[in-house]
Structure formats: C-alpha cells, structure tokens
Design a protein around this nucleic acid. Sequence first.
DNA 1: TATGAATGAGGCTTCATTCAT
DNA 2: AATGAATGAAGCCTCATTCAT
Lengths: 199, 199, 199, 199
Amino acid sequence: MAVSQRQKQKTETKKFLIETAMEQFAKKGLSATRTADIASAAKVSHGTIFLHFPTRERLLEEVIEEFGSRTSRRMHELINGDCNLEEVLAAHLKGIGECEGFYTALISETAVLPEGARNALIMIQSAISHHILQVAERGMDAGTIKTMPFDLFFNTWIGLIHYYLSNRALFSPEDSVISRHGQRLTDHYMNLISAKGGI
Amino acid sequence: MAVSQRQKQKTETKKFLIETAMEQFAKKGLSATRTADIASAAKVSHGTIFLHFPTRERLLEEVIEEFGSRTSRRMHELINGDCNLEEVLAAHLKGIGECEGFYTALISETAVLPEGARNALIMIQSAISHHILQVAERGMDAGTIKTMPFDLFFNTWIGLIHYYLSNRALFSPEDSVISRHGQRLTDHYMNLISAKGGI
Amino acid sequence: MAVSQRQKQKTETKKFLIETAMEQFAKKGLSATRTADIASAAKVSHGTIFLHFPTRERLLEEVIEEFGSRTSRRMHELINGDCNLEEVLAAHLKGIGECEGFYTALISETAVLPEGARNALIMIQSAISHHILQVAERGMDAGTIKTMPFDLFFNTWIGLIHYYLSNRALFSPEDSVISRHGQRLTDHYMNLISAKGGI
Amino acid sequence: MAVSQRQKQKTETKKFLIETAMEQFAKKGLSATRTADIASAAKVSHGTIFLHFPTRERLLEEVIEEFGSRTSRRMHELINGDCNLEEVLAAHLKGIGECEGFYTALISETAVLPEGARNALIMIQSAISHHILQVAERGMDAGTIKTMPFDLFFNTWIGLIHYYLSNRALFSPEDSVISRHGQRLTDHYMNLISAKGGI
DNA sequence: TATGAATGAGGCTTCATTCAT
DNA sequence: AATGAATGAAGCCTCATTCAT
C-alpha cells in the first residue's frame, strides 16, 4: 500500500546516501567530506541528509556499520572450512581491497572520529581477527607456524597492513596498495611466522 | 646586554609555546587543539601565538620538528656502537615513550595534517629506520635473524608499534602503552625475526 | 510551483542584500562597512551574507555591477536621439544623483578597492563616456563647441563632477551635491566648452 | 648641552620618520601602509613610532602637514610676481610632480582618512588655489581668459588633475602622470579658458 | 630615549543543523 | 518526505597600541 511504498522509497534513499557517503569519504577522507558534499554527490538537498540521519556523526557510524557487514559477509564468502593460513590472509586483503579507499580513510582518521564511529570499527576488526585466529591456531597446533600469543599474531599482521595503507602516498601513490603490495606482504608475513628458520 | 636579553626572552617564549603546544596536542589531539587553547594554556594572549608563528600550520610543523630533533638526539644517546638489535628496539621505544602522547597523536592524525607536517614526520621515521636497519643488517649477516628485505623488516616493526599506540584506548586506557606493552612487543618481535624456529 | 517560489525567494533575498549593502556603503563608506553591518542592517544572520556571496569582495563587486546596470539603464531612459549636449550632461548628473551616496563612496575609495571592483567601475565610466562623447562629437562638427580631443573633453567633465562629489563635506555638507551644484556645474562646463568667447 | 643634544636627536629622528612614512605611503598607499612597515623601513623599532606620534592618525597628519609646507614653499620658489597663468599651472604641476606618489595616494584615499588628515589636505589646496586665482584674476581682468567664478575656475583645473592622478593605472601605468600628461593637460586647460573661440 | 614582545578587539569565513514551505 | 535558505557558533588571523626593560 501507499505507506509501505513510501517506507520502501525512504529506505532506498537512505541506502543510497550511505553508498554515496562511503564513496565521498573514500575519495576525500572522512573529516574533509562535508555533509553538503555528500548531499550534492547524491543529488539530494542538504536537508535530506538530516532527514535520514540525526547528525553527521550518526551518518558516519551507519556508513561504517554498512562497511562492516559488507566486509564480514565478504570474508565468509572467501573463506571456507579448510582454508590454510595463507589463503585466509589473502582473503582478508581481498576483502579490504574491495573498499580500500574507505577502509584506508577509516583507519587513518580513527583518532579524530567520534566514539561511536571508533567502536564500530573495533567491532569489525574483532570479527576479522576471529576468522584469522581460528586458522592460525590450527597452524600453531600443527607446528607449521611459530607458537605465539594470538593477540600478537593478529596485531602484527594488522599493524603491517595498516601501516602500508596509511602511508599509501609513500608506498603506492598511483594505484591500490593491496594490489601492488598485497602478495609481497602476505609472503613476508608467512615467512616471519613460519616455524622453519630463514627463507 | 639588553639586546641579547630580549632575544633570549623571545626565544624562551617561543620554546615555551612549542612546549605547551606539544602538551596540548598530546592531551587533546592535533586537530582538536585550537590556537586559542594553546594560548590560554600558555597564559599568553591569543595574538602572541601569531607573533611567533605565522600560521597555525607553521606552529604545528615547528612542534613536529622539535619533537623530531628531540627524538633523534635521544636515539643517539641511547644507542652506542655495539648495541644489539634488542637494545636498539628498546631504545626506540624508550625514545618514543618520552613523548608518547604527542607521538601517538601525530601518527594517529597524519592523514588530516597539512603536507608540511606530514613531511616532517616522514623525515623522523626515516632517521629512525636508518638506525635500526644498520643493526638489523649485522644480525642478518651473522645469521642470528631471518633474512628479509630491509623495508619489510622495519615496516613490520613500526606497524606493530603504531598499531598499539593508535589503539591505546584498547590496549592501555589508563597508562602509557610503551611502559605497559613495550617489553612484550620487543620480545615478540625478536621471536618473530629470530632465525631459530618457534620459541 | 514550489521550486520557482523558492528560487524567487532566494533571488529576492540576494537583491535585498545588494540593496542594503548599497545603502550601508553609501552611508558609511565602502571600507568602513563590515559584512556584519550589512547583515544586521538587513536583519539576517551574518552567515547569510556568505550564502549569497562567496566573499566580501565578491559582494562588493556585485553591488557595483548592480549600480552600473542601474545607471546605464537610467541614462538610456533619460537620453533620446536628439538630445543636445546640455541635456546629456544633465541626464548624466541626474543618473548619478539617484545613487549619489554610493557613487560618491565608490569614486572616493577606488584606490583601496580590490581589482575586480575597480574594473567594474571602469566599465561603467566607459559606458557613460560613450553616450556623452557621441553628442559632443556632433557639437564639435557643428562648430557650437570648441574642438578638442575627446578624452580631454570627457575627463575634464568627469573630473569636475568627481571633485565636487569627493569633497561633499566642503561643498554641500547637508544635502546632495548634485541637487545643490548640478545646474551650476553644467552651466559652467557649457560655458567653458562653448565656441564663443567669454560670457 | 646634553639635554638640547638629545632634543636635537629626537627631532632628527622624528623628521626621518616623517620622511620614511611619506615614502612608504607613496609606494603602498596610505591605508595599506602599516605602522610596522614604516618602522622597519626606517630601521627603528615599532615602538619608536609611538614615541614620536601618539597615534597612527597623528603621524599621518604630520606627514600631510610636512607635505603641505614643502609644496607651499616650492610654489613660492617657482612662481614670481609676473608669471603668466600658463606658468603658474606648470609650476603647480611641477610642485605636485615632486611628490607625485604621495600626493596621489593622499587625494585617492581622502575619503577613508581621519578628519584631521582631511583638514590638513584642505589647507594645502586652499593655499594653492590662492596662488592660482591671483593670476587668473589678472587674466580675466585683462580679457585674455574667459570670465568665470573663481571657485569653478580652480575646481575644474584641480578636478582634471586629480582625475588623471587618481586613474594613473589607466593613463600612465608605467611612469609619472605629470611628466607624461602634464604639458598636454596645461595646454588643454589654457585652450578651454581662453577668451578666443576654438583652437 | 629606544626597544620589541605582548596585547586583545575585531574582521572574514566555514559548516553542521534547523525550519518554513 | 523532500527541499534549501537561513542560522550562529567558532575558528584563524591582523594590527594599532602598550609596557617592562
């Protein structure tokens, strides 16, 4: 009926705003993107933004949440039960690579983000870490990778990746960091954690 | 005489402003700290800031430069010719630890900083990496640590440290990240790069 | 419909701001009038000014342009094909007189105006000079007025008028310079350029 | 004695400041010249300015007064008892030409000047007008120039000159307006006021 | 007397948010 | 529901003037 039709329309618009916002955030950075930029990119009026999101802060949070569930879904698709560690790391990078711009903006600007946004990011990371650590545990048990505390295992990996993403201007000014360095980073990390000495 | 007295006074004030700014930046973050905040923390008028620094941007750059030379000086003091790698990493963390708050703010907000500020940070990193890599090279030659490309060696370490610093709220909400996790991070990294398998 | 209603409203506001700005400029002078003065005179918020004009400078230019087209339109209305010179000069003064305050401010402060504003004024003057010189040429051809270079003809006239306007405090502190001295100035200038000797 | 020595020194400094200020005003315009500019051009401290002049406004007035007496003195030197009108006008232009930059700045920015400064300018003009009118009167009596009210006689001339000076960017962007157009302007004005018809 | 560091009022501009239509 | 004009609280910076030395 008419009402539900409207509801649907409204939901569509909201989705579209989230999508557009994500693109703008990816392109110009989170703090540099003004609500008016998003409105004009989405070809809606400035006021419309605030019809769907009470504040800019809440809009940002919803964009991050959308990104989170998208990433999480993608991880599930890419990883199946008997993946080895290398495949999981590659899947992680692949997942990130699909929204590299936004993800980079997100981790680069975490510090200046409102708390809600920061928490949303933490949720995402912990979901990812869960996936990776599950496989890592098997590796350690099997003796193929060095034994080490799980948190350090994950944080070393994620720290390495974030460092490259955050310094894209240094490492890959032209194209995607993941497509340019992903393979090398995975190989390096596998080498580091491998139970065998040296290369 | 009078003239040098005056100049000294002015230099003192400028130093003090840099010092105060560094504290404020450390406490509230770089972008969240207003020039007026710094002025009132330093108990000078707002205009005084602009007597010593032409723009807020230039003030920020000078604070970073001061931090850089301080860090660099500290590294030199802490490291002597026959340091082993573990000692160098510890020295690095000790150096950072002395201005942990500011350093954390700096790396956490790089993305939203003006170019000059970003470049200043890059200079600092490259000075540090030089120190560390020198020792690492000896270790690889001697076969005590795994052979690997220098850039990855450094970037994995710095990425790990930055990840912990950036997520201080997660890892050490109350006190310093370095004093709480520094030793463990060094041990972990030494284990990772050690030529011997497992622990 | 709604859209055009909105646009009309916005256009109205902009017009009103230009109008108000012109009054304020006329009353207090161009450089002495702050954007905040204009806002409060127009009973809008300070920010509204910048919704309609990107900078104070651009606002000034638009006010000058509005004045220019108003003046030009008025000249056309007042002058018809077979005007004699005296009528044209009178029309010129009449046109100016209608915005005497603003015009006076404009020519009195040209030197401290941004370039765009200066250029806008030059355009106006050249349109006026065209009108006047056309008729002057006929007079010289017919031998009723002295032969002289066109530029000097116009510049002497305009210089005289501007001198009186700029020194209003001297010549007509209470009321309009044009209404008090216009006739006399026209008579004098006609006498000066008349081909016949003396009065 | 010591005291008068000091006094003399102080007077010298003051003279020098006035001289330097005049140059700066000529070069950059009156309102665009800041007290700090003058101080640094004179190689004295900023505070020194306010030791000799209570306010910027008063400094400006004294500069104008100095210019006035200099101009007046120069007029006396250039004009002797039996000058004809043409010679007097030429002398006027010559006098102006010697400080053309400052004089131009002065008349171009009169409107934005404080009252004291405006009054000082008026005094100067009236001294000059006296000189010129004296000779003009003889010409009118002798029937060599058209009869006309004295004020209009002077104001037309001065308006013409000011118009050219004020619009130097239009008429003589490179060099001095007086040296480029002075002769032509004098000739034109002589022609205008000549009792004989036409050229 | 001279210095020049310090002051602080005030200007322009930005942008998230509100509200009448 | 959508619009977009209007709001107003900050933020950065300038510069004449003061005052301790």
